[in-house]
């Protein structure tokens, strides 16, 4: 019986880890271009609430996810304009975006006497594989029991890893994030690159938010994200800006979210408030360990030009 509890909690770790992974992967691409967007929580809520609304209005779930991604990207566009074109402090702009996105979601959720809060998605995210596959021991619930969003996130991880480290476009992206002046010299459009990847980051957050509301909870509540956007931000650092590590770390963070419940069944009582702290605590420890060791710091540190605005004229 203990094994089945463990298995179930690992399977749900994959599910809750998925919005963290989608938002974190997006932020990772953004940060590789040298832009730090602290506004994930806002984009996740803002994009998610529109995606969720679509899912309650007869829209197919892929369409709802796409709309959520689009709205998230539009929120990110605001940050891109402020950070890239106007070159304002990215911390301030990102935090302002958190307030705007959160306010937007709460406002939309409260319109028409909070009808959105009582609305439910018209369809559910169904498992991709048949029951015969899902009943297989271990791999059934862990690997084959998920809906398409989980598998899409795996594909996105692979695409991101390939894109970043195996393609010319990825090289250009990293050049913009590491040394924009040099990238500019060889003809890479620094501003455009930063705009595009900042918006990709917003799209990831918007998808994550939509999946959270329309998929995992099937409902909208104010503050439903409960800091998931911040966990996604921590994920990028914890994963050392590497997509495959983000995949593993997202499920570790996901497991910590609902480990409390399964541990309780096993007779171990660790309160959820303590477990919720772990992703952030682990990230601080990882950060300190990495920054204390120069060899590790070279491999797993942030892009050099992260948060540094680029102005050709003041080169």
């Amino acid at each position: 019986m203990n094994e089945s509890v463990l298995l179930l909690s690992l399977a749900s770790a994959v599910v809750i880890g998925t919005p963290i992974l989608l938002a974190g992967l997006g932020e990772m691409m953004t940060e590789h271009s040298g832009v730090m967007n602290l506004g994930i929580e806002g984009m996740l809520l803002g994009g998610g609430v529109v995606g969720f609304w679509m899912s309650t209005q007869q829209a197919s779930l892929p369409l709802a996810m796409a709309v959520g991604a689009l709205v998230g990207a539009l929120f990110a566009l605001i940050h891109a304009y402020l950070a890239v074109t106007l070159r304002v402090n990215q911390i301030v702009s990102g935090l302002a975006l958190v307030v705007t996105g959160t306010g937007f979601a709460s406002f939309v959720g409260s319109l028409n006497d909070s009808s959105l809060i009582y609305a439910r998605p018209v369809s559910k995210f169904e498992p991709v594989f048949g029951e015969a596959f899902r009943d297989l021991p271990v791999v059934g619930p862990l690997v084959l029991g998920h809906d398409w969003v989980v598998y899409m996130s795996w594909v996105l991880v692979a695409v991101a890893a390939f894109w970043l480290f195996r393609t010319r476009a990825g090289l250009a992206l990293r050049a913009v994030g590491e040394d924009p002046a040099t990238a500019d010299t060889v003809g890479i459009p620094v501003g455009l690159t930063r705009y595009v990847y900042t918006m990709i980051g917003g799209a990831g957050a918007g998808m994550g938010g939509t999946y959270l509301m329309a998929g995992i909870f099937s409902t909208y509540q104010h503050g439903i994200s409960a800091g998931l956007g911040w966990i996604a931000f921590a994920l990028v650092i914890f994963a050392g800006w590497r997509p495959w590590r983000a995949l593993v770390a997202a499920y570790v963070f996901g497991a910590l979210r609902n480990l409390g419940f399964s541990l309780q069944i096993l007779g171990v009582d660790i309160p959820p408030d303590v477990l919720n702290v772990f992703p952030f605590f682990l990230t601080i420890v990882a950060l300190m360990v990495i920054s204390a060791r120069p060899a590790a710091a070279r491999r797993f540190s942030a892009p050099s030009a992260l948060t540094v605005p680029y102005a050709r004229e003041s080169r």
Binding site: A96, L97, V99, G101, T102, G103, S106, F107, H222
Partner: peptide, 12 residues
């Protein structure tokens, strides 16, 4: 909730 949204827009 409009005030939070307004606050955010004002900040931006």
């Amino acid at each position: 909730e409009i005030v939070i949204l307004l606050e955010g827009i004002l900040f931006l």
